[in-house]
Design a protein around this nucleic acid. Structure first.
Lengths: 351, 351
DNA sequence: CTGAAAGCGCTAACAA
DNA sequence: TTGTTAGCGCTTTCAG
């Protein structure tokens, strides 16, 4: 391995000088600089990250934990992936600008057992701060991490003790889409495909549903079922709905996310039902494929990239200044397409 | 920051002993061990990764470079994401078993300019080995990295000088799907939506197309256009096709990947054409949503997770033993659904 | 403008 | 079984 020392010897200077030219900060005589640079080039020298981190007391690496709910590892459906993709993009964009690197790890939501635990600890020793990709990691867990490095939870429940939280305004979004169904389409009989009970996002969305229904006594929730945010679980929800309410179908199925909406639509169409003709369906998130579905999915756009970017900003500010904003909420947007019963997508769609 | 030394002092032992109990390898008297563990617990000690790496001369981190082609940063369509998701899963599964961590970075394919270059260098100083997520990074680039750590290229062109290459059998897959179109559906007039010119995958797939056509003189390629593997570029390809061949449509559109097939189908359907009624369409990759499209997409399944897993295995073997397999090719599978004109999906579909 | 030298926190001989 | 100690490669005062 080529070290600073090797370069220094070849260039006939001290390691301090080499370090200076590598970082371009301090003033070094032009002649010396070029000589050193030649040596660096010739040797193909690249500084050792571990040594730098140790010496600088700073890793220049941010950790991101992506929590997965998947139970059946063989299931082809990708659960939270589309979600993380987008969040990740937002984070990455920022990371790049700050010349940091991203250390990433996936974790099972359940089985918060020893192995995953140890992985997180190990991560916490290699990064300057940690982003938790979804807010349903146990608080004591978070506290343990936060004892070592700053932690920001994305899509978590505001009020986390040891960490900052950045989330989208799920409540308003959910209320908006349900109100659209009721007020603009006159839907009365609703069916709800809920998300996992421990998901802060799902909780807010459900609360909004209940809130809106309370304001519209003429409407009723004819049934509901719980999924795990995956396409497959949406399909199952659709089948269950069919089995239970074949005789008197709901007028609209409100899904807690797009993936499940995809599954529900598939199940409905499989059974020969038309969407939105026979039953309207709505999602939440506006994943990239939502607009390409048949019919295009009416949903709520979460600013997922912004979520990632904002989470990073908060984390970075904690890291560098020690200060941050403990609870940030980002606005969402109703995206009207056709699965709700609207006939053509208004300009809101964005393109 | 809590250090080994702090723990040692609190427990009344030397740092070496603490190190021993942290790693559980060496023999330590039971009483001492518990005393040390209590101290660790009390202080919330977690070893510093940088110091460990420096001392052990090993980072326990694998780097992964995801190359993106995206030109317009504002474009909502996610280009290679679905692809990387799957590959990443394969890699992650292995990483996890080996108790390593994953350092990940995204890079623009174009603009192989200074900024990205520096990011890669910086990564190479923080990892034990690097996985390049797609094979169209310039060779001299790869060589530079490979001078420091082992490098494995996923979906690259076999024969890379400085690195090992792991790829799917694109040629056979492409040949199989086109042959299906010609032999089983009697398609004669084909249109090709090609991938980026510098993509090894796209090159193999195109070569297979030419190869098959050569064997079927009665068939003709009525036109072709080049996309960048994104949904948007597929849409544009579809529009272009429509503009150029409205009068005499092709019988089938062969797309170099699923994303573009999605775009093509959207454009065709937008124009009132039926798929596969008026025009058959095929993809390549079998991304998770392929089966949920309308019609379900006939495509080639690349074993993407296996690609990632295999790439990791090769890399790991290079890292630990210095030996590896320089060119590995994984088999692919024809997935017949409905977009090719078949009426129902045979059992091949997998579920 | 450049060099010498003291660590950063941990590991791993080697001694005891 | 436990302690001592010499680094790992780099940054950063502090002198010169």
């Amino acid at each position: 391995m080529v070290t600073l020392f090797d370069v220094a010897r070849l260039a006939g200077v001290s390691t301090a000088t080499v370090s200076r030219v590598v970082h371009g900060q301090d003033r070094v005589r032009e002649a010396t600089r070029t000589r050193v640079q030649q040596a660096i080039e010739e040797l193909g020298y690249v500084p050792d990250g571990a040594a730098q981190s140790l010496s600088r007391r700073r890793k220049d690496v941010i950790g991101m934990v992506c929590v997965e709910r998947e139970v059946e590892p063989q299931d082809i459906e990708n659960v939270g992936l589309l979600y993380y993709d987008e969040v990740l993009r937002g984070v990455e964009a920022r990371i790049r600008n700050h010349n940091l690197l991203l250390l990433i790890t996936f974790m099972q939501a359940e089985g918060v057992g020893t192995p995953d635990f140890r992985r997180l600890d190990s991560m916490s020793g290699k990064v300057d701060g940690i982003l938790i990709g979804e807010g349903f990691v146990a608080s004591h867990y978070i506290e343990r991490l936060a004892a070592r490095v700053p932690v920001v939870v994305i899509a978590g429940t505001p009020g986390e003790r040891a960490a900052d939280v950045v989330a989208a305004d799920n409540f308003s979004g959910s209320a908006a889409i349900i109100t659209h169904l009721i007020a603009d389409h006159g839907k009365r009989r609703l069916f709800h495909v809920d998300g996992p009970p421990d998901s802060p996002d799902a909780i807010q969305r459900r609360l909004a549903l209940e809130h809106v229904l309370r304001g519209h006594p003429q409407c009723q929730l004819i049934g509901s079922t719980q999924g795990i945010f995956s396409v497959r679980s949406g399909e199952q929800a659709g089948e269950e709905l069919l089995a239970r309410h074949r005789g008197a179908l709901p007028e609209a199925v409100v899904c807690a996310n797009d993936q499940m909406a995809i599954g529900v639509m598939a199940a409905l169409q499989q059974a020969g039902l038309g969407v939105p003709g026979d039953v309207a369906v709505t999602g939440f998130d506006d994943v990239p494929v939502a607009r390409h579905l048949h019919p295009p999915l009416t949903t709520i756009r979460q600013p997922m990239q912004e979520l990632g970017a904002m989470a990073f900003d908060v984390l970075y500010s904690r890291i560098s200044t020690g200060k941050g904003e403990s609870d940030v909420m980002l606005p969402v947007q109703l995206i009207i397409r056709e699965s709700c019963g609207c006939t053509s997508a208004p300009a809101q769609d964005g393109k």
